[in-house]
Simulated assay, not measured.
Amino acid sequence: MKRLPKWRLMSLFTILALVLSGCGEPYLSALKPAGEVADMQYYLMKLSTLIMVGVILVVLIIFVLVFIRFRRKDDKIPKQVEGSHTLEIIWTAIPILLLLILAVPTVATTFKLADVSKMDSKNALVVNVRSHLYWWDFEYPKQGIVTSQELVVPTNEKVYFNLKSMDIKHAFWIPAVGGKMDTNTDNINKFWLEFDDKRANEAGNLFYGKCAELCGPSHALMDFKVKAINRDKFDSWVTAMKNVKTPEKPDSALAQQGQEIFNKSCIGCHAVTPANKMPDTARLAPNLTDFGDRSRVAGILPHTKEDLKNWIKNPEAYKPANQMTGKYGQLTDDQINAVAEYLMSLKVQQ
């Protein structure tokens, strides 16, 4: 009777585990693949799960049969049988066969995903990904542009990535499309992804990326967004970004005031032009060229002026240990309102 409460507690935890395993968002699920890499990884997950479940069922069936058929019925000691070459061969051969069934496609897929030989070709789209505490930087070296927090890619073609960290180890992961891979400080990791056009349209052309390596207090908040659009729209976006040479003067007086404050307090860390001429060490904060077109503030908050003002006023409350905290002088509410108005006006016309 003393053990009964413990069993009840264990049952409760088991039920909670089953319920919580079904929680989450569909755009963060690797079980709804939206690209070639994700399809291959999903196939391997299904194959390994099928093998494991099959082994469990066979063992369970054998256990039940033996339990029923050979249960003790009297005090007689049954005949002792030691050794069976046939059985030993069977239970040695079956695991080897199962390992081969799993290993062959796994190794083949691993080599295919690691093939970045066409990365240096003229038409290959390459993105240099830099991870920071706690934000992402995306450089398109062939196009000569840089953006932050929102990755824009074309659908139905391979996109190659160079991954590097600017501070500590992080990991680049887009659950619905494929991954993950570490970003290190001392070497560059390379891989590729392909975004399916049909499934991108079903997802509203927006996917979500995460940091998949524990990196500090705001690890869970180190998100980025991925806009997957067709090649024509992508080319239009690139052209529009290239045409942004210097920040234009805003239309409203409040936004103009915000631009002046921004140039005095924020321009030392943030860039408002997409040019990639600055060295890696100068990328202290996210590029804000197309901030007005984005879908999130700081990668996590709704893209509204009020949320932007709250972020500027107290970034530590939303992303603990972020690098923006304490980097600028205290602004008044009126100044923050003006800066927010200016930032919301930074849109790239397409």
Rank of each mutant, 00 (worst) to 15 (best):
G24H: 07
E88F: 15
V19L: 14
N123T: 11
F224E: 02
V177Q: 04
E88R: 15
V81E: 12
D333M: 00
A271K: 05
Q149Y: 02
L221V: 02
K249T: 15
F191Y: 10
V152H: 03
K347D: 04
I94Y: 04
M45Q: 12
A220D: 14
I145G: 03
M52V: 10
W7G: 13
F70Q: 06
P320V: 02
A282H: 14
S117Y: 07
A203I: 01
V64G: 10
I77W: 10
D280M: 07
D235F: 06
P250I: 11
V348M: 08
F207P: 01
F67V: 06
I15M: 13
P95I: 10
V58C: 08
N201T: 04
K198C: 07
D137Y: 10
P154Q: 02
P78L: 07
C23W: 05
H270E: 04
D251G: 10
K227V: 01
G22Q: 14
N337Q: 10
I188G: 05
C215V: 09
I62G: 08
L301M: 15
E316G: 03
Y342P: 00
L44S: 02
Y328F: 09
Q80K: 15
F172N: 12
L28K: 09
I229G: 00
G292E: 09
L47D: 08
N156G: 03
A212Y: 11
L288S: 01
Q323A: 05
P105K: 09
D120W: 11
E306S: 08
L9D: 09
I300N: 00
A34L: 04
L308M: 06
T332A: 12
K264S: 11
D197M: 10
G144I: 11
V339D: 00
